[in-house]
Nucleic acid binder design. Structure first.
Length: 604
RNA sequence: GGUCUGGUAGUUCAGUUGGUUAGAACGCUAGCCUGUCACGCUAGAGGUCGAGGGUUCGAGUCCCUUCCAGAUCGCCA
């Protein structure tokens, strides 16, 4: 049982104490980081969220206090009072290393068992343990600083948006399932048996409705939910900075968001972002980089070889073309000595994960080309390829021939992989760009119909509108993504604000009028009553924090994240529930006695 | 749903071709120590080798199943 505070007040935080505080009497509270007992002299490193400070117990303290200090262990919670003195031996590793506190009283407010992980930034404990004991993991300075950073970034955003006439409005968490897009998390309704709410994948429809309501400028920093498989940069619940504006076009949304982005980078990490940001149409991004979120910090651009491969003697190339595919290559500039045969084999394995059947290569050497596929080409043909790809001595050329999307996908990702392996990027280099003119629709082979690339409320480009019924795949959208170093950190669009056009869009997606009304009737109805032109954007806050703090894992910037199986190791969610709870929700019909609950659950 | 990596002391790891009592470092416990700061010295405790099954005279090691964690493809409007 710990001692009581009994009116004791903390006077300072630990990590802020400096030479200027010498002579002051202070009362500090925190956790014991480490104790060094030299016999007649005990040092304790006391930790709170601001850092460490050294406490000294020597023979001038009461015997009782000294005995108590001897009994201190790691992570005990204590309160001490004492005088700040200059240190005899300075510790220049610590910000507080010039001073120490000679304690004259000690209270042990709480004891601690030996923690299963070290409370230390250098701790190497595996993630399973760290997540189970997240409350201990979060005591580490590095973890705390990331969450503090996150909080400050959110505040910067709020301040900016508040200053610019935006109103934060909360939208429902219990809402309606959405047929398009990701899987929904469902919540059963007790009052309406057999019916379900869904957790929002985004507040999309509500923010558009708020524009109908005349809020003019809305934002919300809001949790969103998607029941899909997890990744290093994907959690089932994540936080979005959600923004919507009325009476705007694409350039207006982009303009104000560039200023917001500039402010975020300046305030959070002191980086000056030059405006306006680069803009690149989707098709150009695909052709040059193979992905719709290109990392433009380095070259290694894709080169089309379709015309040169046409009629060559290499069956892999000609077959790809005959099947309507593509042949593209990347010149890995000057990598001749860095990439061994073994490395090239590894790169081949890498592109295979994206469905490519192989990765052909050619080395440009002095006076000759070394390549396993050289024998299929005449010298002139090979030279034409090298010239097209700007090949010089010391370069390695790699090629993929396949269906277009496989070529884009494999080379686009290979590009990023190469940059990583060859260390082509600098840590503090931040390159932002807008990718614009996305296709409005994408053909879904499985469903045998077109599906919205962004979402069904995205406005087609005016000049492409006439193609919506005749050639829907060609229609481009007023949609834009903001990309940072190869990561999509946000995306948005100008929305449809006209019931007729929204109807045409649903039709293009294969919805009957009844289906459209069933799913989105409230929006179509709302559109009848004077809807302003509007559009917006949403940023992934978790990803922003990741990139700005140089973290490669989203779990490190979320206080209580989920594992790859979408479980919480600390709370053990999700869990079984009392069978009677299921009965109330009409998910299970047999009412059972309390003792038998477990048995019934096992038989479900 | 697929592919891949890992699981051995509280923690991080080592553990040879299958072979005696499974080791190291840190941490922990006890003792000594008045200027340490990764304190030092001495002594000590601590193991369901993720779980289950199999092969074998013998399994941490080989095989099968399974659980957990991670990476990734599919998926993520």
């Amino acid at each position: 049982m710990g001692e009581l505070l009994n009116g004791m007040k903390r006077s300072h935080m630990c990590g802020i104490l400096r030479l200027e505080h010498i002579g002051e009497r202070v009362t500090l509270m925190g956790w014991v980081q480490r104790k060094r007992n030299l016999g007649g002299l005990i040092f304790v490193d006391l930790r709170d969220k601001t850092g460490l400070v050294q406490i000294v117990f020597d023979t001038t303290v009461s015997q009782e206090a000294f005995d108590k200090a001897e009994g201190l262990r790691g992570e005990f919670v204590i309160a001490i009072t004492g005088e700040i003195k200059q240190r005899e031996s300075v510790n220049d590793q610590l910000p507080t290393g010039q001073i120490e506190i000679f304690a004259d009283s000690l209270k042990i407010l709480n004891e601690s068992e030996v923690p299963p992980i070290h409370i230390n930034d250098d701790d190497k404990a595996n993630e399973m343990l760290r997540l189970k004991y997240r409350y201990l993991d979060l005591r580490k300075p590095k973890m705390q600083s990331k969450l503090v950073f996150r909080s400050k970034l959110a505040k910067t955003v709020r301040n900016f948006l508040d200053d610019n006439g935006f109103t934060e409005v909360e939208t429902p968490v219990l809402t309606k399932p959405t047929p398009e897009g990701a899987r929904d998390y469902l919540v059963p309704s007790r009052v309406n048996q057999g019916k379900f709410y869904a957790l929002p994948q985004s507040p999309q429809l509500f923010k558009q409705i708020l524009m109908v309501s005349g809020f003019d400028r809305y934002y919300q920093i809001v949790k969103c939910f998607r029941d899909e498989d997890l990744r290093a940069d994907r959690q089932p619940e994540f936080t979005q900075i959600d923004i919507e504006m009325s009476f705007v076009e694409q350039e207006d949304v982009i303009a104000i968001n560039e200023v917001l982005i500039q402010k975020m980078f300046k305030d959070a990490i002191g980086i000056d972002v030059q405006l306006p940001l680069q803009q690149m149409p989707y098709q150009e991004a695909m052709d040059r980089y193979g992905v719709d979120k290109p990392d433009v910090r380095f070259g290694l651009e894709l080169v089309s070889l379709n015309d040169l491969a046409d009629g060559c003697g290499f069956k892999v190339f000609t077959d790809a073309l005959a099947n309507g595919g593509d042949v593209r290559g990347i010149n890995i500039k000057g990598a001749g000595e860095k990439l061994s045969r073994k490395d090239l084999d590894k790169l081949q394995d890498y592109v295979k994960t994206y469905g490519a059947k192989g990765l052909a290569w050619a080395r440009v050497n002095e006076g000759e080309i070394t390549s396993p596929i050289a024998k299929f080409f005449s010298e002139e043909e090979m030279q034409a390829i090298v010239t097209r790809m700007d090949g010089e001595v010391g370069d390695v050329l790699v090629f993929v021939a396949d269906k277009s999307n496989v070529v884009y996908d494999s080379l686009g990702n290979l590009r990023n992989e190469l940059a990583k392996r060859l260390e082509l990027t600098k840590e503090d280099d931040y390159k932002l760009l807008w990718v614009t003119d996305f296709p409005l629709l994408e053909y879904d082979e499985e469903a045998n119909r077109f599906a919205a690339k962004h979402h069904p409320f995205t406005c087609p480009k005016d000049e492409d509108l006439h193609l919506l019924e005749t050639d829907p795949g060609k229609v481009r959208a007023k949609a834009y993504d903001i990309v940072l170093n190869g990561v999509e950190i946000g995306g948005g669009s100008i929305r449809i604000h006209n019931a007729d056009l929204q109807g045409r869009m649903f039709k293009a997606l294969g919805f009957t009028e009844e289906e459209a009304y069933d799913k989105f009737g409230f929006l179509l109805d709302a559109f009848k009553y004077g809807t302003p032109p509007h559009g917006g954007i949403a940023y992934g806050l978790d990803r922003l924090v990741m990139l700005m703090t140089g973290t490669d894992n989203i779990r490190e910037v979320i206080a209580f994240p989920k594992t790859q199986n979408a479980t919480c190791l600390m709370t053990e969610a999700p869990t079984n529930v009392d069978a009677n709870q299921l009965v109330e929700l009409a998910i299970q019909t047999i009412k059972v006695e309390k003792e038998k609950t477990e048995e019934v659950l096992l038989n479900m």
